[in-house]
């Protein structure tokens, strides 16, 4: 479209200013603060080079936090995504009340994550919670401290994550399945293929782009866990409750912490990790999108 040379910049400027002030500048400020020794908001900060990063590398809570991000990601890729795909495959065929199923499976995505966390804390109540109550139907003295058991709490939180996100990935797979022309299925049936063979040889290859998208979203999302972990992991010892984002928050804002410099170093690590993950994954998308 023809226009004066500076016109497009005028269109972009207000958005860019807002974005720079509240997204780009804070990230740059994190980089700066990560080089400061600043253990309390009351004390003046001192430059300390890479000292914060050196300490972070030998901080076992930080490593545990990163490990938990990785565990949750692995769980999502190996359990949640296949489950979502399986449900999509079940639902894609002729189904009674299909719209109802689809709507219901996606519904948890609508809830604030904080509300999901509050709800599931009650579902996991050791005695009167839904899970313990259901299990007591078979085993009359069953009591289990789901969310305060350091060995397994992360697993139970992961179950909640699946409850929240499986429906979303299922919708992605349903959209992918709907792009397969009906002729393919019919041709396969005429050739005598059974449902399994159709899934394996037609649906799965056609879903490859969708699988890539849903895995990419899981990977990017796995670094963003905060609300659920922060709210549900309260009863756990330090080492078994943190992911990277909650650790940053706790270092800076929890009682008696105020460690802005050290927390910023952890934030810089999270940022670099996010870039390292996003750039190779999204390189093609970023290029074609722009």
């Amino acid at each position: 479209m023809s226009h004066r040379r500076y016109t497009p910049y005028l269109f972009i400027l207000p958005a860019l200013a807002m974005y720079a002030l509240f997204v780009v500048l804070p990230i740059a400020d994190s980089l700066r603060m990560s080089l400061l020794h600043w253990s309390s908001p009351l004390l003046p900060p001192e430059f300390c080079g890479l000292d914060n990063f050196r300490r972070l590398m030998s901080d076992s809570v930080f490593w545990h936090a990163a490990w938990h991000n990785l565990l949750l990601l692995t769980g999502s890729l190996l359990l949640q995504l296949p489950l979502a795909m399986a449900i999509a495959l079940l639902l894609h065929q002729r189904t009674i009340a299909r719209g109802l199923f689809r709507t219901a499976f996606f519904a948890p995505m609508m809830m604030p994550t904080a509300a999901i966390a509050v709800l599931w804390q009650y579902l996991y109540e050791p005695e009167s919670g839904l899970l313990s109550s259901v299990i007591r139907c078979w085993q009359s003295d069953f009591v289990f401290p789901w969310l305060s058991d350091p060995g397994s709490a992360l697993l139970w939180i992961f179950v909640t994550i699946c409850w929240q996100y499986t429906g979303f990935h299922m919708v992605l797979y349903l959209a992918g399945l709907s792009t397969i022309p009906n002729d393919y299925y019919e041709a396969a049936r005429i050739d005598g293929a059974n449902e399994w063979q159709i899934c394996w040889h037609i649906a799965l290859p056609a879903l490859r782009p969708t699988i890539a998208i849903s895995a990419t979203l899981s990977i990017i999302g796995s670094l963003k866990y905060f609300d659920l972990i922060y709210l549900m992991g309260g009863g756990l010892p330090e080492k078994s409750r943190e992911v990277m984002a909650t650790y940053i928050y706790r270092l800076a804002f929890e009682q008696n912490q105020g460690r802005y410099g050290y927390g910023s170093a952890a934030a810089v690590c999270l940022f670099v990790l996010a870039l390292a993950v996003v750039i190779p994954l999204q390189a093609r998308q970023l290029r074609t999108a722009s």
Partner: peptide, 16 residues
């Protein structure tokens, strides 16, 4: 530059 904002965890910016 704008698209990257979608992919970065917002928690990086909490302290600043």
């Amino acid at each position: 530059l704008f698209l990257l904002g979608m992919m970065i965890p917002v928690h990086v910016t909490l302290i600043p």
